[in-house]
Design a protein around this nucleic acid. Sequence first.
RNA 1: GCCCAUGUAGCUCAGUCGGUAGAGCACCUGCAUGGUAAGCAGGCGGUCACCAGUUCGAAUCUGGUCGUGGGCUCCA
Length: 643
Amino acid sequence: MTIIVKDIGTVDVEKGKDLLSIAYELGFKDALSALVNAQPKDLSHIPQDGDAVEFITFKHGLGKEIYWHSTAHLMAYAVKNLHPDAILGIGPATDDGFYYDFLIDKPLSDDDLAGIEEEMRRILDEDHRFKRVELSKDEMRELLTERGETLKVELLNDIEDEVISGYWLGEFFDLCRGPHLPSTSYIGAFKLLSVAGAYWRGDEERPMLSRIYGISFPTVEELERHLKLLEEAKRRDHRLIGRQMDLFSIEEKVGSGLVLWHPKGAVILDIIQRFWTDEHIKHGYQIVQTPHIMRDMLFKTSGHYDFYIDNMYTLNVEGTEYVLKPMNCPAHFLIYMSEIRSYRDLPIRYAEMGTVYRRERSGTLHGLLRVRGFTIDDAHIFCTPEQITEEVKKCLKFSVFFIETFGFTDYHFELSVRDPLNKDKYAGSDEEWERAEEALLKAAREVGFEPVRMEGEAVFYGPKLDLKLHDALGRIWQATTIQFDFNLPARFGAVYVDTDGERKEVVVIHRALLGSMERFMGTLIEHYGGDFPLWIAPVQARVLSVSDKFIKYARKVHDILKGDGIRSELDDRDARLQQKIRDAEVMKVPYMLIVGEKEEKEGLVSVRVRKRGNIGTVHLNEFIDNIKSEIESKSTPSMLKKE
RNA sequence: GCCCAUGUAGCUCAGUCGGUAGAGCACCUGCAUGGUAAGCAGGCGGUCACCAGUUCGAAUCUGGUCGUGGGCUCCA
């Protein structure tokens, strides 16, 4: 018989031969699984005449999934050996590894990981095969019940199929769709990374299970490379760099999730905000500013109050209820509605660096990325239905301009739409949703992007288009969000007078390009690891005197730089040059200007670049010209791109 | 909010079996005047997160509160 193998073509094979032998004969030595007529299969599968076969290696996304999933089974086997009372939850592969959840009397802790790894190694030495079995639902239920796997029985009951598959690995059995690796010998290197609590089926009302996260690779080298990447991520942690560079702090005395911006952090915020304001004005926005507290009525009108009150900070002033604003939209609506608006006025674009407060649950707070007080680079665009596509296109181009200026070259878009099965929970008509989705998609395509469609990810008041950026380590962060709103215009009665003299409901687009300033700063810090491009570096140059004989000249250089608008610092401490250099390097200062006898005599500076070292001596004026043009260019230093 | 871990000097951390605390860095003082990633010496600095409890005695044991971290959940 013949099968069609991807990358090879039609191949004659002996009937009854399994995929593993076929892969071996054809030289697909790294194959771990295969797609047979686009269905994932174990290599023990026996193909039929005419099947289309694609062998899958670890390099494929699916290959990784299978590899990690199989490692999860191995881990669960080890856990069951060590803790026979543990009941299996679920154990899938994730984007970067795998986990398995266990219901266990005494929750697992980090200290248990080493023992589990050891047991995994012991099992690995026994070299077990993953053996697939297919049972009827009743047989499967019986087997799982007999093994005490009550949670698996619950999962089983939700499966519609008649024939249910499971896998044996030695004494270990798991309900599982598969496929799996042929045997544990394929698992080259693994590491258990952490334990955490996780609700059964993600439901707060259900029991808390112990979850173990891990990762595995075919070779030790790949594992080590991955662990190094995790180390690098740890080294770039914005909380750590924030302290090292003295950018910000979050103090218990102030309150959780509230950020104190120190001078060096605040100066970065200021640079970003000035740039932001200038560009918004250039792009046809009007800057507005609205109060931090507003009467609760406003949020009752907007409809947020009932739904969101638990997350709002409230205060009572002389018997009147106020809230700290959790969002800027209602205030922008009131500005819009302060006059009768004509179609001739539209689009109207209001932008505000609006600081909002939301009482996020304590467990969700995380450095700058999840806070309770933050500033949104918010804007609301009021327009007619005909203007939608054009306005969305402008937002997209504007967003990309910002993101790229800040040095992010990789990103993708996601279009979040309604959950088709649950249309009731959304505001707005089918027609409005369709029109808005179409406008978002059309705008994205016209600007040259194909967004990833995310079913059910839309917020209740309208569809949205998000830009997700990829940082220097390949991690994905939320940045721009462009959202339609079918809720507020109706609630506020926000209208415009059309050409026919009729009042019509205005269309509103909410958008934030950077997201929140706090989160964006966290993203920037981690992307650059603190080595900011010159134009946003909190300190651009530091003048180091070789000894205290040259402090006078050092101060003169420093004053000239400051006078030219360059963020300069002077290190006039009575310390050795080596120490001054080290301290400047630790603070990630882009340029160190070293001045001693020679420099003073001839009006020179000796220039040292962070992480690179001494690049020679130039006249001060020449240095200033160069640094100014580098600031002007907003460029990302080439030495940073390589990292 | 929930599970687990955790909280000692400004920072990073040590502190054994319960006997009221230690290092490095930072800071201050002095010596050294040093040319491209930490010169040397001395000094200052702690209500051991907070509140109760057990004990002759608590950084240490117990309970609670708050904070932080890893997750779950949430993100209008």
